[in-house]
Design a protein around this nucleic acid. Sequence first.
DNA 1: AAAGACGACAACCGCGATACA
DNA 2: TTGTATCGCGGTTGTCGTCTT
Length: 259
Amino acid sequence: MGRSPCCEKAHTNKGAWTKEEDDRLISYIKAHGEGCWRSLPKSAGLLRCGKSCRLRWINYLRPDLKRGNFTEEEDELIIKLHSLLGNKWSLIAGRLPGRTDNEIKNYWNTHIRRKLLNRGIDPTTHRPLNEPPQEQPPPPPPPLSATTNTISFSTIKEEKQEMSITNTCKTMFICKEERNPVEERCPDLNLELRISPPCQQIRGVCFVCRLGLQNSKDCSCNNIIMGSGIGTSTANSNSGCDFLGIKSGVLDYRSLEMK
DNA sequence: AAAGACGACAACCGCGATACA
DNA sequence: TTGTATCGCGGTTGTCGTCTT
């Protein structure tokens, strides 16, 4: 039953990779291809965990990697993608050829985060720091045709991820605008997903409270009552209110479009 | 010049999803 | 159907180089 253990940790090297280890890994993968990470170390004569080999290959040894500084265009793309996807580094990396999730994650934490803070933007929410509470609900989003951004999800893996987002949405009462069911089967579809807090933030009670989590940090109706929240919550608006601590603006997937 | 602080990034760890026996 | 291994991901840590005092 099951499989044998991933690796014998007692007999594996840890820490920085040597040139010799790199060469062994590269030549083995060139000869046999990627995959079978579990058996790769033994076959390649490496005293490494398969997991470690995979990481080393994906992040540093792959021939298609683009090394060097990020361009301004890449910076802006990362920021935009992060505002849409959050810390989904692998998805973001999928949109930046030659860049890895680990590289982007490190770059985000060391450069972009600071860059956004200098701009007065919260790197987590992508909203202005110290944003004053809004008296009025945010204006309704402009017509879709005017706002749709195009993000191409080109790999099967990413499509799978998209599906998981959709499935998650369903379990979280997230509304999906099924404007054209045919598009769902098309790889070039515009998902037109809209993630909203449960439409029923009824009578000023947020979804978190409805789950019995009153006074939770995720409670947004406190914000309404106290008038001191991030300020976008309204009892009768679907747009712009917090949902489990995540801005619906951030979760507005209507702008994701499959290519 | 030395020591501590800080930044950058490579690598590890833990977890969830999935595959497999 | 169930238990376990594998894979892949995101968060965190460790280490090394550079800067500042």
